[in-house]
Nucleic acid binder design. Structure first.
Length: 185
DNA sequence: GAATAGATCCGC
DNA sequence: CGGATCTATTCA
């Protein structure tokens, strides 16, 4: 006799936040694992649908490819913090710092689905503009106790996804380090 | 100090 | 396709 297995039965009853260990891992792995996680900030909630990995000083597309600067310094710090920078003079991009302290790597959040408003934020600049994220929100601790900080919650979802080259870069375009959910959550 | 390219988005 | 317009790097 086949056992019926409700698909959402494994979802946790109460919100479980991602721990520092989640981010203290290979960046490509973290980028994949972030898909389907719930991001909470400033009263907004959205499921992460699209990410890209930027992996250390040997990745030519990474901001840390030419060493530490004032802008990218947070990438050299401990994992589980935000890295927000200004691109093209007008748009902000949200990243999460990964891997051990001293290893500059991060995951760029490119897409968010907001169930409450049925709004699909496709693109890092759009996403930050909607959530009100600016450079002021860089270096926030995602795993700390500050109630106003951004939070990441494990939904138990493991959505299927595609791998593609990263968007908008020339160096490192051969790497398939963009991950985008290809099925409905 | 100037020139240039860049992990973008929008309007024409 | 081009404009908006900040940051970091490269070149003089």
């Amino acid at each position: 006799m086949a056992r019926a297995k409700p698909i959402s039965k494994s979802a946790p009853a109460k919100p479980v936040r991602l721990t520092r260990d989640f981010f203290d891992a290979p960046t490509v792995t973290v980028a994949k694992n972030l898909l389907g996680k719930l991001l909470s900030f400033n009263g907004h909630f959205g499921l992460i649908m699209e990410t890209e990995a930027y992996v250390g000083e040997n990745d030519p597309a990474c901001h840390a490819a030419r060493g530490i600067t004032k802008r990218n310094a947070v990438m050299y710090g401990p994992p589980g913090h935000t890295y927000v920078y200004l691109i093209y003079g007008m748009y902000h991009c949200l990243n999460f710092v990964t891997e051990a302290k001293g290893k500059p790597a991060a995951v760029l959040i490119r897409g968010l689905y907001m169930p409450k408003t049925d709004l699909w934020l496709d693109g890092p600049g759009k996403l930050c503009r909607h959530l009100g994220i600016t450079r002021d929100h860089t270096a926030m601790d995602l795993c700390g106790d500050d109630p106003s900080a951004m939070r990441l919650i494990d939904t138990g979802l493991r959505p299927k996804f595609d791998k593609t080259p990263r968007i908008g870069i020339r160096q490192g375009a051969d790497k398939l380090w963009r991950f985008v959910v290809n099925s409905k959550i």
